[in-house]
C-alpha cells in the first residue's frame, strides 16, 4: 500500500546498505532527486541496476556508493563517456566496482521476467556477441519444440526500484506517460519501490484509459518532488536540460571539481532545490 511520505524517510526506510537498487527512466523521468538523497544518506555497497547508467550513476559511483553495476549502456547520452564510472573501472577510484554487462534487449527482458515472477528471461539475443564470454550470467536454453538455441539470463529482482513519474493520486496510484521505458516492469519486479512525482492530484479523471498506471498496492512510497527528474525531463511538465548534460562532461572530468560540485549541489542541499532548477524549462 503506497505511503505518501518525504524523500528522506522513504530512502532511510526502504534503501539499505548492500541492497540491489534499480533506478530506471530511459532518458526520460530519471529519478535524480531520489539518487541525490541516497548519496546524502551515504548508503553503501549497493548493487546498482540500470539499463543506461548516466549522470546519476556517475555521481553515485563517484561518491563510492556502488560495489557493482549491472547495465547495458554506460554513457552520457549524446555527449560522451561517463568519466567517474571510467575512473572507477580503470583506476579503482574512489573504489573498484564489479560490473555485469548486458544488452538493452537483455536488461529489458530481465525486468520483464522479474515482473512476471519468472526466474529467468529467454529471448533471441547475444548471437555472436562478445558479452557471452565475459558475463557468466549469459547462458542458453534449447527450445523444447523447435530446437532453437535461445539466450537465457537471470530475471532482475531488485530489493528496491526507484523511479520518477508525472503524478500520483491521493491513494498513491501512479501515472506515467511519454517514453515509459522499463519503469512499470522495474517496479513490479522489485520487493519495494519509491516513486517520486511532480504532483499529487485528487483524481486521474482526464487520463486516457490506456495510460501506464501503477496501482497503489504495487508501490511502497510516493514522494512529491517537483522537478525531481532534472536534468532529465518530465513529459508535460518541463524539457530536458541538455546544457546540464553537456556541463556534466566538464564537471566529471576531474576528481576535485566533481567532489566540489557534489558538495555544493547535492550534499549541502535538499530535494526542494529541484523545482527551481526546472523553472526555465517549463513549457
Amino acid at each position: 500500500m503506497a505511503q505518501i511520505t518525504t524523500l528522506a524517510s522513504a530512502v532511510r526506510d526502504l534503501v539499505h546498505d548492500g541492497d540491489t537498487v534499480a533506478f530506471e527512466g530511459f532518458t526520460h523521468l530519471i529519478p535524480h532527486a531520489a539518487a541525490h538523497e541516497v548519496i546524502r544518506q551515504g548508503k553503501k555497497d549497493l548493487t546498482l541496476i540500470r539499463m543506461t547508467p548516466d549522470v546519476i550513476y556517475d555521481q553515485m559511483i563517484g561518491m563510492g556508493l556502488a560495489k557493482k553495476a549491472v547495465f547495458s549502456y554506460a554513457g552520457n547520452p549524446g555527449v560522451g563517456l561517463l568519466k567517474r564510472m571510467r575512473d572507477a573501472l580503470e583506476n579503482g577510484w574512489p573504489r573498484s566496482i564489479e560490473t555485469e554487462e548486458h544488452s538493452h534487449a537483455g536488461m529489458a527482458n530481465a525486468y520483464e521476467a522479474g515482473a512476471a515472477g519468472l526466474p529467468c528471461a529467454i529471448f533471441r539475443g547475444y548471437r555472436g556477441a562478445g558479452l557471452k564470454a565475459v558475463n557468466p550470467n549469459i547462458r542458453s536454453v534449447v527450445c523444447p519444440f523447435t530446437g532453437e538455441e535461445l539466450a537465457a539470463i537471470p530475471a532482475n529482482r531488485p530489493d528496491v526500484t526507484i523511479i520518477h513519474a508525472q503524478k500520483a493520486n491521493r491513494k498513491g496510484d501512479v501515472l506515467i506517460e511519454g517514453i515509459i521505458g522499463v519503469q512499470k516492469e522495474a517496479v513490479l519486479a522489485a520487493k519495494r519501490s519509491i516513486v517520486t512525482v511532480e504532483e499529487v492530484v485528487d483524481h486521474f479523471d482526464d487520463a486516457h484509459p490506456n495510460l501506464c498506471i501503477l496501482p497503489h498496492w504495487t508501490v511502497t512510497a510516493v514522494v512529491v518532488v517537483p522537478g525531481g527528474a532534472h536534468p532529465s525531463y518530465t513529459h508535460g511538465y518541463y524539457a530536458r536540460d541538455n546544457a546540464a548534460y553537456l556541463a556534466w562532461n566538464e564537471i566529471s572530468g576531474d576528481r576535485d571539481t566533481f567532489l566540489a560540485w557534489m558538495k555544493a549541489n547535492v550534499l549541502d542541499v535538499g530535494p526542494d532545490v529541484f523545482a527551481a532548477r526546472v523553472e526555465g524549462l517549463r513549457k
Binding site: S103, A105, G125, Y126, L131
Partner: peptide, 17 residues
C-alpha cells in the same frame, strides 16, 4: 580496459534481428 566505451546498448540484437 585502456578505454572503457559506453557498451552495446541495443546494438547486439539490432545487428542480428
Amino acid at each position: 580496459p585502456k578505454v572503457r566505451l559506453p557498451g552495446g546498448g541495443g546494438a547486439p540484437e539490432i545487428a542480428t534481428s
